[in-house]
Each structure stands twice: as C-alpha cells, then as structure tokens.
Design a protein around this nucleic acid. Structure first.
Lengths: 215, 215, 215, 215
DNA sequence: TATGAATGAGTATTCATTCAT
DNA sequence: GATGAATGAATACTCATTCAT
C-alpha cells in the first residue's frame, strides 16, 4: 500500500484540503523525527519531503514545538481513547486491560509511536510539556485502575499495581526502539505475544493449569 | 553522604588526578544530560558545574559526542559484565536471568541510566554509534540465550524468547523515565517486584502452585 | 466622536468607495506606525484593524513603503501648503512665520505627525526617499525665508536664520515624542506657548517692553 | 585625526583589551545605527566593520538590543552627568541651564547622538526600555527645574517651564537630523547660536537692552 | 594545565510580496 | 474585489570546537 506523501500534488476539494495538508505536515514531521530524531531534523528537511518551502509549514503550524506536540498527541490520544473505552467496559479487569494493550501496540507501532516515547517532553515548553505529562499520567493511572479492578474481580493475581503498570507500559513503550528495524510482526501479533508473556509469566505452567488462557 | 562535585578543588596525587578528573567530567555530563537532556546541555553547563572553563573539558575528553559515548558505556558495561558472568554460571536459566535483572536495575538507576536508554544513538557518529548498538545487541542476545536456556532446563515456561527479551528489556529500560521523579524504591526492591511480575505473570495463581517462587 | 475604523463595513457609492478605502488604509497604517513603530508593524496588523486580509491592502497600495510615504506626505503636504500660503502673504515676516507655526503644530499633532518625524526616510527607497527629503527641505527653506523676511522688515531681531530655523523646526518636530502620552493641551495651545517662547525668548523682559506681543 | 576603528588590529595590554574591545563594539554599532538605522543594520554589518565574525560580538555583548541600549546610555549618561553637576551649581538658573545646553550639544553631536534621539525605545524590551525612559525623564525634569530656578532668581523671564523644556529639548534633540550632513559648525558654535536664540528670542531687541547678554 | 578569545556552521522564525481563483 | 496559499530573502542567536598563550 503506497500512501501518497504529499497532498500538494493532488488538488481537490478546496475546503478540506487545508485540514489534509496540516495532517500531512504533522505526519511528515513524525516520520522525520522518527528517522533522524527531533533535534537532527530541520524544518527544511520536513519541507523538502513535502515538496514545499519552509515558510509554508508555518502556514499550517505555529512552530517546530507545535509539530512535536501534535505528534505526541496523535499517538497518546489514541491510547487515551482506548483507556476511556476500557473504563466503561463491563468485562473483567484482565480482559479490559488486554484490550487496552492491543490498542496501545497499535498506536505505538504507528508513525507517531516514536514521538510518544522517544521525544523528550523537555523539548516542549512548560505549557505544552505540562499537557503531555498530563496525558501520559492519565494513561498510567488508567492502567493501574484496570490492574486493581482485575485484582478485585479475581481475573488478575495479587501484585503491586504501580510496578506492574510501570513494567507493562515500559515493555510497550520500548517497542519503537526495536520495531523500526524489525517490523516482521504485525501490531496484533506483537500484542498477542506480550499479552501471553505478561499474563502467564515466564515461570513454567503446572500441567493442566488453565488460568493462562489469554483472553 | 556528600559526593565532592569537582576534584579540581582537592589536589592530590598528581598521576591519578587526571583519571579522577576525567571521571568527574563524564559523571557531570551524565547528570546534566539526565536533567536537561543531551541537546539542551551545553558544554558551558557542564564546565560550570565543575567550576572549570569550557576548553578545559577538551583536555579530558575529545568531544561532546565522546562524553555521551562514555555515559552510554559506563552503564552498558556494567550490564554486559553481569551478562558475561551469567554466561559462565551453572545455575538454572531462570536463576541466572534473575541475577542479570538485578544488575540491570542496579545499573539503570545509576546516574548513567538515563543515557543508556534516553540518549539517542543518533547523536553518536557512525563509529561510536555502531559500538553502542553492538553492546546493546550483545546484551539482548545474552538475555535471549538465558531465556532459551531456561526453557531448555525447564525453569522457564514455553515462550517466544525474542519477544520475551524485548518485553523484559523494555520494562527495565523504561525505569529511568519514572525513577527520577519517584525514587521511593531501592534498586533491589524494584528488581524484586519486576522479577515477581515477570516470573509469575499477572494471571491469578492456582492455589498451592509453588513454581512462582521467585528465586 | 466615533470615527468608523473601516469603510469595508459600510458599502455605498461604488465609485468613491475606492478612494475612501485607500484613505482608510493609509490612516490605519499611520496609527499603527505611531503606536508600534514602522518596523514593528506588520501588514497583518494593519489588515486586522481594517477587518481585511493582507493581500487586499495591495489592492489599494503598492507596498508597505508606499504606505509610509503617503503618511509622510499627508503630514508634510499640510505644512507645505501653509508655507506656500505664507509666501503669498503680505503681513510681516514674523506674523507669517507664526501662522506657519500654527499650521505646523496642527499637522504634527495629527495621526500623521509621528510619521513625519519619527519614521526614517531610510525606510524609503532612493526614489521616494528623495521626494520626502525634497519636501522637508522645501519647508526648511521657507522657514528660513520667512525669518530673513522678518529680519528685513524689522519684525524679527538679528539672528542666524539657518540655526533659528533648525531650532524652531526641531522644537516643533519633537512634539510627537511627548504629545502621545501627554495630550493635555490642544494644538493651538501648544502653538501659543511655543510662539511665546520663541518670540520673547527666555531672558526676562525689561519692564514696559511691548515687542513681545505675540501675534 | 584618524580614530582607529578596530582594536583587534593593535594588540597590547591584555587585561584592558577586553574593555576596549567592548567599547569598540558599541561604538561601531552606534555608527552603523546612525548611518543605516537600527533595523537596517545587521550584526554582520557591525562585525564586518570590526573585521570580526558575528559570534565574536556576542562575546562582548549579550544581544543586539543590548548594543542599542548601550548606545542610548553612552549619550544619555553624559547629559545626565551635566544635569547633576548643574544641580549642585551656585550660579543663576540661566547660567546653569546654559552649561547643560553646552554639554547636551556636545553629547548629541557625538557618535551616540543619533541613538539618543532617533532610536525607538520600542526596539528595547520592557526592561531596558523602562530604564531609558527613566533616564530621559530625569533629564527632562532637571531642565524644568533649572527653568524654574531661573524664573525664581530672575535670570529667566516668566514662562511655562514644561513647554519651554519641551521646546529646548526638541531643538537640541533634532540636531542629529541635520548635523550629519551639515557638520560645518562645531558643537560649541551650535550651542552658542542656540543659546542666543533661546535666551534673546526672535523678537527684535529694543535698543540698548542688555539682558540678552548670553552668559 | 587551563583559559580567553574567536569562529564556522547551523537553524528557527518573520514578513513583504505574489498569484491563481 | 478579495482571499487563501505559498514563497524568497533576511537575520538574530547558539554552540561545539580550536588555538595562542
């Protein structure tokens, strides 16, 4: 599947073009940041990819900082959405947690995954930095909540929810580090493996134990 | 315990001073990088902490890049050492893996932890970058090897060693992200919790199952 | 009295609208220049005041430079008119000079006053810059001429006309610097005080002297 | 008399060189600002005059804004000094005022004269802008004070001190506008003429009146 | 050893201006 | 008449690095 890189080449419905173009700018930024890193990416780089000149970018985005922020958000929003959906779910804590993990992997393997985890929120000013930290914290809290719910309803064994959340989020957040160069698995496949590992643990299962049934 | 920040203030044995000072430079760099990020740290910042002028740093270090490299290495070497020790160990795969995890957590909560995981190897030139990637890869391979050993000797349940290694390393590597602001646990305590989570998994243990015994 | 800021809001006689709008553009520019300075005023600022977009301005004006030029001229023309009227006058040199001063103060306290004196003619290209310098020089020459006429007809004491013209013009041109923040006096009141000071001088008048009669 | 433009060419006493160089930077800035205007002067321009590269300027000065501020101050300080000296004087108000005028003209015909009056304090941030406005206001107040003193001791005729101060300062501040292209008179000569004009006024002196004696 | 001084290379940002619609 | 979109040119500022002393 070839995704057209630049909507500047394919004109069309004028009214919506603007929105599309802005998205293209953000996406191009996300890719460039992932490939070269935020600080090693100049606006000229991004503009070049889009076959546009640098000031044009400013027509769609206020600053480089805003680009980074939007990349952050594009990814985090998806996960946050999954979290809030999980909240209103009725199934067991474990099952709902597993759903969140699936969405998490989906989001983090996207173009924006890198930004979500590798970009320093130090690169954002206090304003935007705070908003990102808030989003991240919200996700963390929701994961802990699901863990506690699972412990409560018996679908998850006794554990320290805070540490478990850190371990789980860490494993997930680390995906962009190796996924870029080793994208042999689909997001879903990765999710399956991770769920298995985290649910069953590494210890050998006693014969006939069935609680490790994945979902 | 007050650690002297700068050896320039306490003269002594001339011969070894140099080595000490170089260490101080690296360590000061590590702290600054952790606090402000690599790109937001100027050599002036580091020099100021050491009560030294910028060109003096070059007497001990060839470049900013080298500082970063040394920070990387300071942390990775410790883990690599633990890995090679594990290799020559005789106990079960699981037990040896657990030992590696302990050393890992120890190393990653040090001043150099941040650099090991947050610094982009993109900030290193091809030369040094390659060496870092090699070190990291070696550690990854060793973890997979231990997992396979554990599966082989029955101390670890059936799992995908590659994904399990990714999950484990991810959880560990993520520690610096939250540890800085939430250093309420000792490295050993963190290691214990993580080991428990990864060994037993999150699924509720059937009554009387004992295989989750941590070490 | 509320002056409508933008004629774009009140349509009407098509033919003359254009002229009105052009004037509105110039006037809005003059105000913005006075408030923020020429270089700190962007065309967007001016457009925003008029509730119009930037390119629209170009429909009425060729360039930012032309705006400045027109502001210059709007003020200078008024003074030049007063000068040429003075030339054809028949009263004494002093009386005619005083009339010029009145018109001068009137003009310089207008919206365009700032531009007349604070705007750098360096901001105009050689073409327009030369025209402005010519206008200014003409005014200067006329003032000197009136001074010489006054000396000739005995209504003005012996003095260096060039320096006197510089002193007088300087005092007048400086008005915008303090008038903006201290507009407690009317233009006429300011003119009266200035005339008094320049005619009588600061030295104490001998008793009974009457030559200081202001107009 | 040729003033060496750049101390970079003539090394010497190391300790004081720095101070000299900083002064040279400020002075070069002042000249460039006078010739091309603040906004039309790039740091490259200034650096080129000094046969130095742009970053070198930053070794001596924090920003372009600071350059402007120092130019402002270099001139204003001289006048302020004359003012404070006048304050402690014992001669008549008129005589002390005349001394201030002499210093004023001296200062305003210097390289820094242009900055004192043509530079917009809008080009300075709120911090430095406020300090400049304060300096200017102090000078204005002192002139008014001298006028009132003169009126009190009978050396100056009855007049509105505020307006008289504005007129006098305006005439003086305007000097840079014409002095650059018409430097045929020395500062002292200009001062003499201005004093004569302001003291005696333009009205014809009655025969035998002697109060116009200049100092 | 250590430093004061200088620099080259790089980059985000602004803005007047143009043009197709 | 008016505008959305795009651009070229210009510029202040930062910083790792070097070198004479």
């Amino acid at each position: 599947m070839v995704r057209p890189v630049s909507p500047w080449q394919v004109p069309g419905n004028r009214a919506r073009q603007r929105e599309l173009k802005r998205d293209a700018v953000i996406r191009a930024a996300a890719r460039a940041f992932r490939e070269r890193g935020y600080h090693h990416t100049s606006l000229d780089d991004i503009a070049a990819v889009l076959h546009v000149t640098k000031p044009t970018l400013y027509y769609y985005v206020a600053s480089k900082e805003e680009m980074l922020f939007e990349c952050f958000r594009a990814g985090l929003d998806r996960i946050a959405a999954a979290c809030s959906q999980a909240r209103s779910g009725t199934s067991s804590g474990r099952e709902r947690l597993i759903e969140v993990v699936r969405s998490y992997v989906e989001a983090i393997t996207s173009d924006f995954g890198w930004c979500m985890v590798r970009a320093e929120d130090q690169d954002l000013g206090p304003e935007l930095g705070a908003r990102i930290r808030q989003l991240k914290s919200g996700i963390d809290q929701e994961i802990r909540r699901l863990l506690r719910a699972g412990i409560g309803d018996g679908s998850i064994g006794d554990c320290d929810p805070k540490m478990a959340a850190f371990a789980l989020a860490g494993a997930l957040n680390w995906i962009p580090h190796w996924y870029r160069d080793d994208a042999t698995l689909s997001a879903d496949a990765i999710a399956d493996r991770f769920i298995e590992i985290f649910v069953q643990g590494l210890a050998p299962r006693p014969e006939g134990a069935s609680s490790g049934n994945v979902s």
